Computed example of a mutant assay.
Amino acid sequence: MKRYQIVLAVFTFVLFSCHGQTSKNVQTITAAAFSEKIKATPNTPILDVRTPEEFALEHLDNAINVNWLGSSFTADSQKYDKTKPVFVYCKSGGRSKQAAAKLAALGFTTIYELDGGILKWNAAGLAKPSDKIIGICSQEYAELLNSDKKVLINFYAEWCAPCKKMTPYLLQMQKELAPKITIIRLNADENKTILQELKITELPTLLLYDNKELKWQHAGFISEDDLKKQL
């Protein structure tokens, strides 16, 4: 018993030591602070941990694509100086949080993670101004709401874990509730323009309209039962 208690004590000490090191090495900061830190530390790696397809659509200036979901994340990360700061971001913060923890475990001493990802970056007005419309425009979005039925808009992404959990019952509800409610799913990566105009900073996001008026809004996962209560 005594030996077991000693082993347990050592394990607990190591666990909390590692946790402390990770939280100490990783700083999750706002988009504005992230931008200022980048300016203050030039020539510092800015790691975009999204997929190559997402990276190709948009990314921060001078960012390097190191795919968290790829098989070579660890090897690619090891190319950089662990004693110097490194910046990490993704679309909404989920993957960058995991990537930052991994970098800390690999021995990186100063890791800045973008809170809320590139969605918060764009919402803060830090993206480069562009006249290019990606996906539907505001006029087309307004036309989606032109219905005598309630309209539920679902912004999602293929890489988003909560979105994937919700997809099966949302597709089923599209059929079952069709006589009363129109459910429209919009891929956030393919509709950047309207996403920015609506200031959506988290996925999934649900917007319920009645007579073109926004009646309810929800960000993050929601169960099928709880969603049906709102409809």
Rank of each mutant, 00 (worst) to 15 (best):
R3G: 01
V10I: 11
V10S: 03
V14D: 09
F16H: 04
F16W: 04
S17G: 13
S17F: 04
C18Y: 08
H19D: 08
T22S: 07
T22R: 10
K24M: 11
T28S: 03
A33M: 11
F34L: 04
S35H: 14
E36V: 10
K37G: 06
R50E: 02
A56E: 15
L57M: 13
D61I: 06
W68H: 07
W68A: 08
S72K: 12
A75H: 05
Y80H: 03
T83A: 11
P85V: 01
V86T: 05
C90N: 00
C90M: 00
S92T: 07
A99F: 00
A99G: 01
L106K: 04
G107L: 03
T109D: 10
I118H: 03
K120R: 10
K120A: 08
G125A: 10
L126Q: 11
L126F: 06
A127N: 15
K132W: 03
K132N: 14
I133F: 11
I134W: 09
C137R: 15
E140G: 10
A142K: 15
E143I: 09
S147F: 07
K150M: 12
N154G: 04
F155W: 04
W159R: 10
C160A: 10
A161Y: 04
C163I: 10
K165M: 14
M166S: 13
P168D: 08
L171P: 05
L171N: 15
M173I: 06
M173Q: 11
E176F: 01
A178T: 12
A178N: 11
P179S: 05
P179D: 07
K180Y: 03
I184S: 07
R185N: 10
N187I: 07
N187E: 13
A188N: 09
A188F: 03
N191S: 06
I194Q: 12
L195F: 09
Q196A: 15
E197D: 13
K199T: 15
K199L: 13
L203G: 14
P204I: 13
D210S: 06
K212A: 05
L214E: 14
K215P: 02
Q217I: 08
Q217C: 01
H218P: 08
I222H: 02
S223E: 06
D226R: 07
K229E: 11
Q230N: 08
L231F: 15
